[in-house]
Computed example of a mutant assay.
Amino acid sequence: MSIDWNAFTPWSALAGGALIGLAAAIFALANGRIAGISGLLGSLLQPGAQGRGEAALFLLGLLVAPVLWGLFAALPAIEFDSGALGLIGAGLLVGIGTRYASGCTSGHGVCGIARLSPRSLVATLCFMAAGFATVFVLRHLLGG
């Protein structure tokens, strides 16, 4: 493995991580809720759920941010090599996984670990291990 030092951008990655942490902290302080995307999306889909307004605004911000970025700089190219069936399968597996784990990577990985939650630490370790195993199997065993 080698690093393309011309494309290595630690400062933008650090700034992005800091902004994600800041947004999660402000959301928790303002609303008393975790900024987990699966939970916020789930609350939008439940009729009569509390906090639907702030959930909708938070999720809208996730959709508007790339549009605003595109006004000032070129967006990175999106590459997905598995086709529509792979994308649908991946989405279903992630959706099922977030239900079993009672949250997603943003809820457990960003918010839960920051609160020193043992359950979130275990969930995040499981997410990461599953991702590593999937990449290993697809790239090295199946040659994809």
Rank of each mutant, 00 (worst) to 15 (best):
I3T: 13
W5K: 02
N6P: 00
P10E: 15
W11H: 15
W11Y: 15
S12N: 10
A13I: 10
A13V: 12
A15R: 10
G17S: 08
A18Q: 10
L19H: 12
L22M: 09
L22P: 00
A23D: 03
A23N: 04
A24Y: 02
F27R: 01
F27N: 09
A30M: 14
A30G: 14
N31V: 15
N31C: 15
G32C: 11
R33D: 10
R33H: 12
I34T: 11
I34D: 03
A35Y: 01
A35G: 10
A35T: 05
G36A: 10
S38K: 01
G39A: 09
L41I: 14
L41N: 11
L41Q: 10
G42S: 13
S43I: 13
S43T: 14
L44D: 11
L45Q: 04
Q46F: 01
P47S: 06
A49N: 06
Q50C: 02
G51N: 08
G51T: 06
G53T: 10
G53L: 14
A55K: 01
A55P: 07
L57W: 15
F58E: 12
L59C: 11
L59D: 06
L59Y: 11
L60H: 12
L62K: 13
L62N: 15
L63A: 13
L63N: 12
L63V: 07
A65Y: 00
P66Y: 03
V67I: 03
V67A: 05
L68E: 02
G70F: 04
L71D: 00
L71C: 04
L71W: 06
L71G: 00
L71P: 00
F72P: 02
A73E: 08
A74K: 05
I78W: 08
I78D: 08
I78L: 05
E79Q: 07
E79P: 04
F80I: 05
D81Y: 04
S82W: 06
L85G: 05
L85T: 00
G86Y: 08
I88S: 07
I88Q: 05
G89N: 10
G89M: 09
G89Q: 11
A90C: 15
G95T: 11
G95Q: 10
I96W: 09
T98F: 07
R99D: 12
Y100P: 09
Y100W: 14
A101C: 07
S102C: 11
S102W: 13
G103V: 01
G103Q: 02
G103K: 03
G103N: 04
C104W: 00
C104L: 11
G107K: 01
G107V: 03
H108Y: 12
H108P: 14
G109S: 07
G109N: 06
C111Q: 04
C111E: 04
G112A: 14
I113D: 15
A114V: 03
A114G: 07
A114R: 13
R115F: 09
L116P: 02
P118C: 09
P118E: 12
R119M: 12
R119T: 15
S120R: 01
S120I: 04
L121M: 15
V122P: 11
A123D: 06
T124H: 04
L125Q: 06
C126P: 00
M128P: 01
A130R: 03
F132R: 00
F132C: 05
F132N: 00
T134D: 03
V135G: 00
V135R: 00
V135A: 04
F136N: 00
F136W: 13
V137F: 03
L138N: 03
R139S: 06
G144P: 00
G144V: 04
